[in-house]
Design a protein around this nucleic acid. Structure first.
Length: 665
RNA sequence: GCCGACGUAGCUCAACGGUAGAGCACAGCUUUCGUAAAGCUGAGGUUGUGGGUUCGAUUCCCACCGUCGGCCCCA
C-alpha cells in the first residue's frame, strides 16, 4: 500500500499506511496539527479524520486563515445548536437544514426546526447555555456513511420526516450512493460535512435572532422556526462583528430620516405611504432636477399622466390579472369595469405613443416621467423607504426600431452608471434577470424573449460590465439589467433597472410607418436609473450616513451669530447667501456659540459661518466645516464662489479638500 | 400574508397589578457668550385601538392596527 500526497506548495510526501489529514498535518509539524480545522482532499472539503487509504492525492490543510475554515466552524456551530435544541425540547424536534452563511452581513449560520412549541428571542440564552455545555464536553463529531435505504430507515425510525424527504430529493437530483451522517455524542444529524473534529473547537458564537421560515421557502409549506447565529474563531472577532452591526444600524435610513427630519410614515395615512418632510423634499427635488437636466440632454421628452386608469387598460397590458395580488383593489365604478391605481407607468406612456401616428423618422421616442405608482406590498415586506406601497419611478419608455435598440440600451446603462458614479455608490452588482423557464407568469413568445435576452447580453458584454445572470428575475414582459445595492445591514435592493420589452408593443399593437411605407412594430425599453427616488434616497441616506454632499444637503450653510449683538450682521449675511441661491439657515436662538455649532454639526449641515464682532467689523465670515473644523475668515463673495463650485461639481471639487491641500503644503 | 418580538411625552428610554418618570427637544425668564451641550422655571400622557380578568390594568389575557427581524415576493 502506498499513498502519495501532493501539497499546494509543490511539496509531496509518501506514506505506506492509511492516513488521515490530521495525521499528515501533524507529520508536517506538530503546530500545523494543532491548528488544523479541516482539509481539502483532491479539491473536496473533508474532515480531518477522513481516512486516506491509497493512491495519489492533493491535500490542503485548512487553518483558521483559510476562508473555507470559517464555513466549517459555522456549520458545526449550527449542529451544536441543533443538538442543544434537541436536548432542551426533546425528540419531537424535527431537523431540516442548517447551513453556514458566508456572505451575509449579519448572520453566520441558521438552522430551521419544526418545533412542538414556539420560540422567542428570550429562549436564545437558554439554548446558548446548553451549547456551551456541549462545547465544554468536547464531544467528537464522527462521520458515518449509510446507503440511502439504510439512511431512510434510520431517519424514519427516529421520526425525522424532513430528513426522509431530503434523502428522497438527493436520490432524484444527484442519484447518490451514500448518505453521510455525523454522530455527536448521542445526537445524530444527516449532513454533508465537513465538521470540526470535536465540539470543543467552537470558541466564540452568538445566537442572534429567531424568525419564521417556510419549509423550502414555499409559503404553501409549513412555517418552521429558524434560529440565526454567528460564530468566529475567537471572541475578539465576534465582538468586532457585533460592534460592526451596531454601527451599521446607526446608519439606518429610518432612524436618520427621523433624526434629520427627512420623511415620516403615518399610521393614519397608511402603511408604506411615505410623507416627505421639507428637508427630505429638498433632497428629492435636487436629485430629480439634476436627472431631468440629464434626460433633456439625452433627447427625452417629459410627459405627465394620472395615477389611475381603467381596469381594461391593465388587462391589455397583462398587469391584470397576472399581478392582481400585488395591486390595490379595483376602484368600482358602477356599470363600468372600474379603475386601478396604476402599478406601472408604461400603459399610460403607451397611450401617449398611440395618440398620433408615428413615423420611423421620429424614433427613438423617449417619454420620461417621475410617475408615482401603487403596489399592494404584503404588510410584512414594508420597510422604511426601501419597500413602500406608493412610490415614484424615475421612469421612461423608449420606443425604437430593432436597429436602434442596442444603442439605446447602452445609453441607458451609461446613464445609470453616471448616476451611481456621481453619488459615489460604487458598491453594487449588476444582475441580468432572465425568465424562469418553468414558470408561466411571463407574457409573450419565446422568440421575443430570446431576442430580448440576446440584446441585453450583447450590451453588457460591449460595455464591459461584470454581471451575473439569474433566471426568474425578469419582469413579466421582458428581461432586464438590474443594479443591486446593499443597505446598511447587507440586504439587497434593486435600484436602477433597464428592461427590454418586445411584448407590450405587441399587446397594444403599437406601430410606426417605416421608410418602406409599411407599418412596423417598435420595441420598448423601460428604464429607471434611480429605480425609485424613495428607495434610492433611502439607500443614499445610509450611504452618506445622513451627511449629504453639499448639492443635496437640505441646509447647506448654517449662519451662527456669536451673540445677539451680531444678529443684524448675521441676518444680512444670510440674506446674501439666500439671494445667491444658497440654502442658508440663521440660528438666532439665545444659545452660546458652542451649542449652535453642536446643533448644526449633529444636523449634518456641511458649512457653518461663525459671525461675531470681529467678522462684523472686518466684513468677513468665519467658515467652519462640519467635519474639518475651522477654516478661518474670508469675504462672503469668495465663500459663495467656492461653495458654488462645490455645488455645481456635485462635490467633486470640494472646498474642504482644497483647504486641506493648502494646509498640506 | 405567515412566524416571533415590540408599541409609554415630539425623540430616546424607565416604571411591569396600587393609578406614570428621566434626559433631550419645546415654552418663559436670566445670561450676550468665539468653534460640539449656560442656568432656573414651566408645559407636555384616556400608556397604539377595542374588549376581557381584577376592588384596581401601562403591567395579566384576547382581538385588531402599526413597527421591527425573518420567510415568500418585488422598484
Amino acid at each position: 500500500m502506498s499513498i502519495t500526497i501532493q501539497f499546494p506548495d509543490g511539496d509531496s510526501r509518501q506514506y505506506d499506511s492509511a492516513m488521515t489529514p490530521l495525521q499528515i498535518a501533524s507529520d508536517i509539524s506538530e503546530g500545523l496539527g494543532r491548528v488544523a480545522i479541516a482539509a481539502e482532499l483532491d479539491g473536496e472539503p473533508v474532515d480531518l479524520s477522513r481516512q486516506i487509504d491509497t493512491g495519489d492525492h492533493t491535500l490542503r490543510i485548512l487553518t483558521r486563515h483559510d476562508p473555507e475554515s470559517l464555513k466549517v466552524l459555522r456549520h458545526t456551530a449550527a449542529h451544536i445548536m441543533a443538538n442543544a435544541v434537541r436536548n432542551l425540547y426533546g425528540d419531537k424536534v424535527q431537523y431540516t437544514v442548517g447551513p453556514a452563511l458566508m456572505d451575509d452581513f449579519q448572520y453566520g449560520f441558521y438552522y430551521d426546526f419544526d418545533l412542538p412549541e414556539s420560540l422567542s428571542t428570550d429562549d436564545l440564552g437558554k439554548i446558548e447555555s446548553e451549547m456551551k455545555r456541549i462545547i465544554k464536553a468536547r464531544t467528537p463529531l464522527e462521520r458515518i456513511e449509510l446507503t440511502p435505504a439504510e439512511a431512510k430507515e434510520r431517519m424514519t425510525a427516529i421520526g425525522q420526516e424532513y430528513k426522509v424527504r431530503m434523502i428522497d430529493d438527493l436520490l432524484t437530483a444527484e442519484n447518490v450512493e451514500t448518505i453521510s451522517f455525523y454522530n455527536q455524542g448521542d445526537f445524530v444529524d444527516m449532513c454533508r460535512g465537513p465538521h470540526l473534529p470535536d465540539t470543543g473547537k467552537l470558541k466564540a458564537f452568538k445566537l442572534q435572532t429567531v424568525a419564521g421560515a417556510y419549509w423550502r421557502g414555499d409559503e404553501n409549506n409549513k412555517m418552521l422556526t429558524r434560529i440565526y447565529g454567528t460564530a468566529f474563531f475567537d471572541k475578539k472577532e465576534l465582538a468586532e462583528h457585533l460592534e460592526r452591526i451596531e454601527e451599521a444600524r446607526k446608519r439606518d435610513h429610518r432612524i436618520l430620516g427621523k433624526q434629520l427630519g427627512l420623511f415620516t410614515l403615518s399610521d393614519e395615512v397608511g402603511p408604506g405611504l411615505p410623507l416627505w418632510l421639507p428637508k427630505g423634499t429638498i433632497i428629492r427635488m435636487e436629485l430629480e432636477g439634476w436627472l431631468r437636466g440629464e434626460l433633456l440632454k439625452r433627447g427625452y421628452q417629459a410627459v405627465m399622466t394620472p395615477h389611475i386608469g381603467r381596469l381594461d387598460l391593465y388587462r391589455t397590458s397583462g398587469h391584470y390579472p397576472y399581478y392582481e395580488h400585488g395591486l390595490f383593489p379595483t376602484l368600482p365604478m358602477g356599470e363600468d369595469d372600474g379603475y386601478l391605481l396604476k402599478p406601472m407607468n408604461c400603459p399610460h406612456h403607451i397611450q401617449i405613443y398611440k395618440s398620433s401616428q408615428r413615423s420611423y423618422r421620429e424614433l427613438p421616442i423617449r417619454f420620461s416621467e417621475f410617475g408615482t405608482v401603487y403596489r399592494f406590498e404584503k404588510s410584512g415586506d414594508l420597510n422604511g423607504l426601501t419597500r413602500v406601497r406608493g412610490f415614484t419611478q424615475d421612469d421612461a419608455h423608449i420606443f425604437c426600431s430593432p436597429q436602434q435598440l442596442e444603442v439605446e440600451i447602452t445609453s441607458c446603462v451609461e446613464l445609470t452608471k453616471l448616476v451611481l458614479d456621481t453619488l459615489g455608490l460604487n458598491d453594487y452588482r449588476v444582475r441580468i434577470g432572465l425568465r424562469d423557464p418553468d414558470s408561466s407568469k411571463y407574457t409573450g413568445s419565446s422568440e421575443n424573449w430570446n431576442l430580448a435576452e440576446q440584446n441585453i447580453r450583447n450590451v453588457v458584454r460591449d460595455v464591459g460590465l461584470d454581471y451575473t445572470e439569474e433566471s426568474g428575475e425578469a419582469a413579466f414582459y421582458g428581461p432586464k439589467i438590474d443594479f443591486v445595492i446593499n443597505d446598511c445591514i447587507g440586504r439587497e435592493w434593486q435600484l436602477g433597472t433597464i428592461q427590454v420589452d418586445y411584448n407590450l408593443p405587441e399587446r397594444f399593437a403599437l406601430e410606426y410607418i417605416g421608410s418602406d411605407n409599411a407599418p412596423h412594430r417598435p420595441i420598448m425599453i423601460h428604464r429607471a436609473p434611480l429605480g425609485s427616488p424613495e428607495r434610492f434616497i433611502g439607500i443614499l441616506i445610509e450611504h452618506f450616513a445622513g451627511a449629504f454632499p453639499l448639492w443635496l444637503a437640505p441646509v447647506q450653510v448654517a449662519v451662527l451669530p456669536v451673540s445677539e449683538k451680531c444678529a443684524d450682521y448675521a441676518t444680512e449675511q444670510t440674506r446674501i447667501l439666500k439671494d445667491n441661491g444658497i440654502r442658508a439657515e440663521l440660528d438666532d436662538s439665545p444659545e452660546k456659540i458652542g451649542a449652535k455649532i453642536r446643533r448644526a454639526t449633529l444636523d449634518k449641515v456641511p458649512y457653518m459661518l461663525i459671525l461675531g464682532q470681529k467678522e462684523a467689523d472686518a466684513g468677513t465670515v468665519a467658515v467652519r466645516h462640519r467635519t474639518e473644523g475651522d477654516f478661518g475668515a474670508v469675504g462672503i463673495d469668495g465663500f459663495i464662489a467656492d461653495i458654488r463650485t462645490e455645488i455645481e461639481t456635485k462635490g467633486s471639487q470640494c472646498v474642504a479638500d482644497r483647504v486641506l491641500e493648502t494646509e498640506d503644503r
